[in-house]
Computed example of a mutant assay.
Amino acid sequence: MDVHYIVDHGKSARSLRRDGVQRALALLASGEYFGGVRTLVIAKLDRLSRSVVDFGNILRTATRQGWSLIALDLGIDMTTATRQLVAGILMQVAEWEAKIIGEGTKAALAVVKRERGIVPGPVSAVPAEVADQIAAMRAKGLTLQSIADDLNSAGIAPPKGGRWYPTSVRRAA
């Protein structure tokens, strides 16, 4: 019996687009490398995938191709419907955990950016010359309304078309 050890360190389990996982799935699909015993043994369920959809697809593939999946951290052989249910519930927790980690990371990055003076949000679609013109008018002390009126009178359209308003001037500056 051939045994293949595939190590897939340093990659996020949020996606199956990882060399190690793809190699293991390809070996299982071919069936030629296994002497009758076709099993994917994983150290931790949440290292295989953190996606309920991907995990469900792996289970369906295993059933269709006739191989089994064992998660050592859980001690679960997923060859029965009940064991697949338990693993699926645990996979939902793993997916939730990944989302919570992502939200925490995003919030921490936003704090760091604010501390460095980087304003979060989309990049302005206002051409640089118009933004410079608005900045110059604001530096002269013109009100947002008077700047909007001047831009409208000059026929300069805002990025999304229509007319300039004090709020669109404020966002553009």
Rank of each mutant, 00 (worst) to 15 (best):
A87K: 07
Q145G: 13
S153Q: 07
E95I: 08
A29W: 01
S68E: 15
R60T: 13
D8P: 09
Y5E: 09
V112H: 12
V21M: 14
R23E: 14
V126R: 04
T80S: 15
M78V: 06
R38L: 06
K160V: 04
Q92S: 14
E95H: 11
Q133V: 14
V52C: 03
A29I: 06
R163H: 10
G141N: 09
A26E: 12
L27C: 02
V123Y: 08
Q84E: 06
G66Y: 02
R83H: 05
T80V: 08
V112Q: 15
I156Y: 05
D19Q: 12
A128L: 14
K106N: 02
A94K: 04
I58C: 01
T82F: 07
A154Q: 10
L69P: 00
S30V: 06
M1D: 11
G104H: 12
H9F: 08
V37A: 10
V111Q: 06
T143Y: 07
G35I: 07
D54I: 07
I147F: 03
K11W: 06
G117Q: 08
W96P: 02
G121K: 09
A107G: 03
A29C: 00
F55V: 11
A128I: 11
E129N: 07
S68A: 13
V7D: 14
H4T: 05
A110W: 09
R47S: 07
R60C: 05
E32H: 11
R38V: 04
R38N: 04
H9N: 13
A107F: 02
L25A: 04
L48P: 05
L16P: 09
G31R: 11
R14M: 01
F34E: 04
E115C: 13
E129H: 12
I70L: 11
D19I: 02
G31V: 06
Q84R: 15
S124F: 01
P158C: 04
R64C: 01
T167P: 00
V111E: 10
L16R: 04
R47W: 09
R23I: 14
R38E: 01
S153T: 13
I101P: 05
S49Q: 02
M78R: 03
D77K: 13
T82H: 05
S146A: 14
R47K: 03
S12N: 09
G121W: 01
G31N: 08
P159Q: 10
A136T: 15
R138H: 08
V53K: 15
S12V: 11
M1F: 01
V123E: 09
V112L: 12
D132T: 15
